[in-house]
Amino acid sequence: MNTEFMFFIQLVVSGIALGCLYALIAVGFVLILKATGIMNFAQGEVIMLSAFICYFLVTTFHVPFLVAVLLTGIIAGLMGIVTERLILRPMLGEPIFSVVMVTIGLSIFLRSMAGILFGHNNLVFPSPFPTEAVKMGGIVVSQTEIWIMLSSLVLAAVFFIFFKYSRMGLAMRGTADHQDVALLMGISVKQVFALIWAVSFITAAASGVFLANVMVINLGLSVVAIGAFPAIVLGGLESIPGAIVGGLAIGIIENLAGGYLDQIIGGGVKDVTPFVVLFLVLMIRPYGLFGKKEIERV
């Protein structure tokens, strides 16, 4: 029983680490979705670009890791502001479909630019975290994973405080709630939007840096963002706590499916299970677990 049980716990623990990554990615999506109603399809590319930027800062420019992370965050934030200003601002008030399509165009553009700027080779990040794993009562957790979990926790707390107490955070929530009313209350919606994009891109950069530590860095990194889609929907598109819970849930579900179902059904159910869960959840709760239930009056 013991090994069976340990196996289960170990799967859950590594699932949580994976889930934290998904949650981080999902939060990046949800921030923009919540405030502007736009699904940003270029999020994955931002993640990939940040991984590359951090890699080159560390290897080519010999910047210490923490400074490199900080710089990557700043660059990503600037990218967010520029994207908002140049691309999304002109689209204000246009049909949401066209805006989403613009982000798809942006993703195509960014992906090929990444190829041109950074090349197509598989790169391996010189991880600053020691490779020795930490053992706690038979449960193995790598130091990278601990850092991922800790920083996700910190980021979640920061977001919570920011949205609950800070002036700007309140302005963002107000804007998300009702743009016109926010404008009437003297909130600069344009500023809020720019900031939202910046914050979302910074979150993406954080997930990019962590992904760089666990995966090979190449253009394929952007596909990981698609893996976070179930997490977003599970949490209900517009809720940040929802995205975090959704991310964790998907991480654990994926690992458990890999550990148990893959042996029985076979053929890589690990990848498909999150999407099946997503489909089932939507059948029962069409607005996700934490989503806003829209009441339509007739």
């Binding site: 590594s14 893996g227 076979g266």
Partner: peptide, 22 residues
């Protein structure tokens, strides 16, 4: 003993490693 899928875009291979180990 084991036949497991390792997806090409795998973020990590924990479940695969643990199963092989088990």
């Amino acid at each position: 003993v084991s036949e497991l899928v390792l997806p090409t875009g795998a973020v990590d291979a924990s479940s695969q490693v643990l199963t092989l180990q088990k």
